[in-house]
């Protein structure tokens, strides 16, 4: 499968890094601003889908490999379940890091913009779910893309 026209490729070259940065911003600030792991992962995956659609099979093959995304998807889901199991001293999915102070930050109550290192285990869960969602949605695109052109794969 060939890529799309030169106009689309130029716009993609300019835009895709900004879309990826914006998606990771949504994932990292999930406990302070609207958004979270699922939304940010979807935004990053849409940047990868833009790359896959605008470029052809041959240029994308070295950059986005299905095996790497498969490994990161499984590790993201395992990290999420493991973070849930870490709080099993009280209940499953207990937020055992909230309000501990020190490295995990002291929460300022009331209306405030907030710090990045508050909320205990929630940012770690956001990152785990974000990695899982971005790898999973990119994997769907890559599998459909590879099934369309069986000859260029070799």
């Amino acid at each position: 499968m060939r890529g799309m026209s030169k106009i689309v490729r130029t716009i993609t070259n300019i835009l895709y890094s900004f879309i990826i940065i914006f998606g990771f911003y949504i994932i990292m600030h999930g406990h302070l601003t609207p958004g979270g792991g699922f939304q940010g992962g979807a935004v990053v995956a849409s940047a990868f889908a833009l790359l896959v659609v605008s470029y052809g099979a041959l240029k994308i093959k070295d950059m986005l490999k299905a095996k790497n995304f498969s490994v990161s998807e499984c590790s993201g889901l395992l990290a999420f379940i493991g973070l849930g199991f870490l709080g099993i001293g009280t209940v499953f999915f207990y937020n055992f890091l909230a309000g501990k102070g020190g490295l995990f930050g002291n929460v300022i109550y009331g209306i405030n913009p907030g710090d990045l290192n508050t909320a205990g285990v929630l940012p770690l869960m956001n990152i785990a779910v974000g990695i899982e969602v971005l790898s999973g949605l990119t994997l769907i695109i890559l599998y459909m893309f590879n099934a369309n052109n069986p000859k260029e794969e070799k």
Partner: peptide, 9 residues
């Protein structure tokens, strides 16, 4: 974003 890409493919 993603649904459009899947439909185009």
């Amino acid at each position: 974003g993603l649904t459009t890409a899947i439909f185009v493919l």
